[in-house]
Simulated scan of single mutants.
Amino acid sequence: MKATRLAIPEVVLIEPRVFGDDRGFFFESFNHLQFEEAIGRQVKFVQDNHSRSGKGVLRGLHYQIQNPQGKLVRVVSGEVLDVAVDMRQSSPSFGQWVSALLSAENKHQLWVPEGFAHGFVVLSESADFLYKTTDYYAPEHECSLLWNDAQVGVDWMLERLAGAAPQLSAKDKVGNVFSDAECYK
């Protein structure tokens, strides 16, 4: 397994060792000891989630101030652009974002720790997105940062959607702009 810290070093790209031949492939998708060594801290995952979305679906940017969730995310079918925005006021990268292309083909995973808003957009015809969380989903504590907030300026690679607008849920259409968003201390 190869672990690469992104421009915001707490966000880590995980690349598994893949063994393949004419029969197919094998890889270890999760090893707790290696994962903790890669991110430099202990974690306990409590929930696994699976979503399927069509091309152009944009989910996010979500986070929970109370019951914050760290997420280990991956794609098992299709391709997405996965995005993390630093919502920690005490961080030198507060308000900055990083992204990674995750796909069934590259088998990469992204560790998005607590303190970040998270989202993704589907760039393929569809995508199956799996993720582990360090705390339970608590809808009463969920916050949403507006996906296209100009102050944050995420490049969602929308040119890959051939001119189509992203498909958003009702709550994602009305997320908070960064200047009004609730943040971690």
Rank of each mutant, 00 (worst) to 15 (best):
Y184T: 04
R59Q: 03
K107S: 03
G40W: 06
G119H: 09
V85Y: 01
S91V: 07
F94R: 00
L145I: 05
V43Y: 05
K107W: 10
F178C: 10
D155A: 10
T134L: 14
A100S: 12
K55N: 07
A7K: 04
G70L: 13
Y137W: 05
L102R: 07
M87A: 04
P92G: 07
M87N: 05
D21T: 07
F26L: 05
F129C: 06
F25A: 01
F35K: 05
F19E: 10
L146A: 14
L130E: 10
D135H: 12
A7Q: 10
L168D: 09
E125H: 04
P92S: 11
L145Q: 10
F25Q: 07
L58T: 05
C143M: 12
E140S: 12
F116E: 11
A181S: 11
V73D: 05
P16L: 03
G78P: 05
W97H: 06
M157S: 15
A84H: 02
A104D: 13
F120T: 01
M157E: 15
H32D: 14
F120E: 07
G163F: 07
M87Q: 09
E140C: 06
E37A: 15
H108L: 08
L13C: 14
P68G: 02
H50K: 02
V76P: 06
A150M: 09
A7L: 02
T133E: 02
G78S: 15
G95Y: 00
E142N: 07
P92V: 10
R52D: 00
F30V: 06
L61Y: 01
A84S: 08
E142T: 04
F19L: 10
E105F: 11
G60Q: 03
V57I: 12
E37K: 12
G54P: 01
R52Q: 11
V43S: 04
V152N: 09
A104V: 01
Y63R: 01
V76Y: 06
P16G: 03
P113C: 03
R5L: 07
T133H: 01
L61C: 11
D149R: 03
S126V: 02
K44Q: 14
S29W: 03
S103C: 11
K2Q: 13
H62S: 13
M1D: 12
E159F: 02
F25M: 07
E15W: 07
S90Y: 15
S126P: 00
P16A: 03
G40L: 06
M1E: 08
R17M: 08
D172N: 10
S51A: 11
K71V: 06
G54Y: 03
V174W: 00
G119I: 06
K55C: 14
N31V: 03
R5F: 02
D21S: 02
S124V: 11
M1H: 04
L58P: 00
V154P: 04
L72M: 09
D135K: 03
E140Q: 08
S90T: 14
L145E: 10
L130M: 11
H118W: 03
Q151E: 14
L61M: 15
V121K: 01
H62K: 03
A181N: 09
L101R: 13
Y136F: 15
S179V: 15
G54F: 07
E114A: 15
D21K: 08
E28Y: 00
S29E: 04
A104W: 01
D155N: 14
N148D: 11
I14C: 14
G70H: 08
F116A: 04
V57S: 01
